[in-house]
Write a protein that binds this DNA or RNA. Sequence first.
DNA 1: TCTAATTGTTGGACTGGGTCTAGATATTCC
DNA 2: GGAATATCTAGACCCAGTCCAACAATTAGA
Lengths: 193, 193
Amino acid sequence: MAGRPRASSQRMLEEAASELFLEQGYAKTTIEQITQRAGVSRNTFFNYFGSKSDLLWIELDTSLAVLSEALAEAPEGEPPLRAVAGALHATAETFTPERAPLVLTQHEVMGIDAELKATGLARALAHADVIERFLAVRLTGPDAALRARAIALAVLGAAAAAVGRWAADGPERDPLVAYVDRVVGPALAGFGG
Amino acid sequence: MAGRPRASSQRMLEEAASELFLEQGYAKTTIEQITQRAGVSRNTFFNYFGSKSDLLWIELDTSLAVLSEALAEAPEGEPPLRAVAGALHATAETFTPERAPLVLTQHEVMGIDAELKATGLARALAHADVIERFLAVRLTGPDAALRARAIALAVLGAAAAAVGRWAADGPERDPLVAYVDRVVGPALAGFGG
DNA sequence: TCTAATTGTTGGACTGGGTCTAGATATTCC
DNA sequence: GGAATATCTAGACCCAGTCCAACAATTAGA
């Protein structure tokens, strides 16, 4: 393995960005400010992140990995909807207050608007795609494709509501799993077994 | 009412944009090209639209109005979830192939990527907010707030899946209502009556 | 040890979305 | 004929994101 070693770790950029977001909000923070504080050039930022909004949703990438893995490990015999519920449960367990997207725990400080919600939705859609692909394989029947996508988006919407509520409830809340379990079951129930 | 009359109707900008999107795709079309074809200056564009992606989702605004009105007209005695299902049914009825967002009927031509889907979902979130507000008033019980949001997002996810499937199925498909009804019921069923 | 391939970093130029301000133009009301 | 009002335009500006060419630091191999 040859090549120049990475001088500025991704972490330094993340931390510089977190500080600035909390100090002055997301919108007013420029990439140039972030890279200056991290001590690198502006272009280096794009070696580590594809866009500014990536910084808000980093933890969702690991969440997506957990979800994928949990679904992949679902035994063949398990009812598909039960597998989805279990996978979401497992995913929610990884969301501790420290390891949650900054934007969720600090959204009142950072000034989150509609455009920012859209960037979060794009990430959430990736989760839905994973669930949909899982279901597309395991569901049968005429409407399988429509049902797979509908179930995936519906259950993800319910989970998103749980996450949002959890974030809004502040530090004294129950763990996220409690919120998620309360809504994922009902969202799936109507789609039968 | 005084003032200079609007020389370039919103329609002309929409039509110029539609043509260009179909000719060369959404991403490669600049606002400057749109305004040139419409015969106005670039700045005028922002008198009519807040952003380029607004052009893709214009019809969703009327859809939102239909949904709001349908919910507002729901009789007091009607079970809330049934009212939501009915309102979504009524909303879906207004989506004819001619009066559907361009991006849905022509998405294969225009090159729609994940980020663009997210802008659509952001608009859809406004629909979810309407449903949530309706349910927040009519639902009771300890978890009413969480349940209202979960139901709203879940049913909207299901409806979005229906719309997406409808768009993908091309001109020979059934009317949108058939798709929506097939998934909205199951999405709501688990949340009880 | 010298060289080549590899990888990371940088600076600079560039595109395009979006904001802002000042001024020009067209209309209605008085 | 003004005012008052609303639209349109021109220009400058900020910033996210892309691209490219040069440069720096490392390792593998001759």
